[in-house]
Design a protein around this nucleic acid. Sequence first.
DNA 1: GTTGACTTTATAGCAGCTGCAAGGTCTATG
DNA 2: CATAGACCTTGCAGCTGCTATAAAGTCAAC
Lengths: 277, 277
Amino acid sequence: MGYLSIGEMAKLNGLSEQSLRLYDRMGLISPTHRGEENGYRYYDIRQSAVLDIIQYMKSLGMSLKEISVQLRDPDINYIETVLRRRQEQVDGEIKNLKFQRRAIERTIESIEHYRTAPPDGTIVLEYIGRRQMYLIDCGINFYDYDMDEYERLLRELKDSLSADQLPQIYFCNAGTVLRQENLAQRRFYSTELFVFVDREFVSADLTTPIPASNYLCIYCDSFYKEKEYAERLLQEAEKRGYRVTGDYLCESISDIPMVDTTARGMFLRLQIPVSFA
Amino acid sequence: MGYLSIGEMAKLNGLSEQSLRLYDRMGLISPTHRGEENGYRYYDIRQSAVLDIIQYMKSLGMSLKEISVQLRDPDINYIETVLRRRQEQVDGEIKNLKFQRRAIERTIESIEHYRTAPPDGTIVLEYIGRRQMYLIDCGINFYDYDMDEYERLLRELKDSLSADQLPQIYFCNAGTVLRQENLAQRRFYSTELFVFVDREFVSADLTTPIPASNYLCIYCDSFYKEKEYAERLLQEAEKRGYRVTGDYLCESISDIPMVDTTARGMFLRLQIPVSFA
DNA sequence: GTTGACTTTATAGCAGCTGCAAGGTCTATG
DNA sequence: CATAGACCTTGCAGCTGCTATAAAGTCAAC
């Protein structure tokens, strides 16, 4: 009495007939009976318990092969090991997803910023809140080189990020620092690259805080105009009677959507913190 | 000057040569040059920017095909849509993983419980803290039927769980309730199945709280001994002069590791809440 | 006896790679 | 100049956990 055909068993347990056949072939679970004449698979409803276990083990990230080994020769210690391994893995995945979640927010904000950004060459005064940067010193003055070398240095930044277990995703918001004293003397010398990161996600000893301030900013759509525009920025600050209060930043805005398949699409916001006095 | 071979490009960007060749074939990114004679791929380091974008898009869950479309004909609005879609997806995944994380903890506890559990037939008094159960009324008195029907009802519970968007993973901790008044009259009539769930993860209106209490418990290794053991439990309570203060529960412990490939491996803890007086 | 729902096996495909084989090429050293 | 060893090319097979399809056989109901 009461055997279930493959279709009934599948429906009852919410999986496909194909999966049941696959599990049979892989030795996870075979029907208790086979039709003598027709070769049909007939399952006992109690085998649902095995399907539950299979499902559970799958959710633990075990492969079908591993599962079949466990079903054949169950080892509770092994299961416990898998559970603990999986627990750590899940913790890691949660952390990653939280990173990613934040990075996506950041990109959306960045796109909005890009959309509303003034055209190339515009100078504006903006208040920018407190930020946190992840900084590396690459030991090479990139102003002496061109785009190629800059790309090479970006790779270094990228490697450094991943060495510190930070998600690559922050990488879309990179930039460079020019120290206040160098800028004052029009000396384009800098070896420092950064990405902006989140204070709440990245440990404090890896990051450098940038205080909130009013910034005099100029928007720029090419890597090659940077020096010229920076000069304009300084002149404008002087004209307006602002005092420069910190380091100059060259921030790349919305790197991602600016796709140019031969080179990095650039939209930069060059900025210097200023006070009025 | 300075073209990169496929190996250099791969190393620089932390992916395999095979992947670069795949991306070429799929039309995501082709080397700017090809060796005339030897057919070698030569990349421009600036193409790293494209690889960054590809990586970013991949992390957004886009397929290589979608990515190639976007690279060919970028649409910032589409990107934003993908970003928002991905954001929701990430939120869902985080929620799921938190569920899973908790369920794994629960299973590990369950295994530990199983390891230290007394042998079949032992009666002990245990304090059990507050619990939360997800309960369904299946409308059928399962004491009138055997294991087959019980399996069928478990499937119903399972469907109900997934209809309420709860993870199947809780399913490993199922059990049945017998109301106090029925037990008192030795009337084995119950239509209620449950799984234990977490208060913090499952909305309150889906769950029923079980207060903390001392429970007189008997451990049982077979479905078929339940009635007999429940009777023993009642007699023991009487002998010790305890008063039954609530519903009887039949809780299955560590369902998962008890693998018997023909039927559900059972280890039950039958329990009645009692007070002394 | 026919219809239509079911079953069987076998085979191919998916995505995003990895790995291998067979063959050609580059560069450095002897 | 020869040769070794690192590199490159294409093409094909394989991985996982399915899904989809085809061709053929079976069952239950009318």
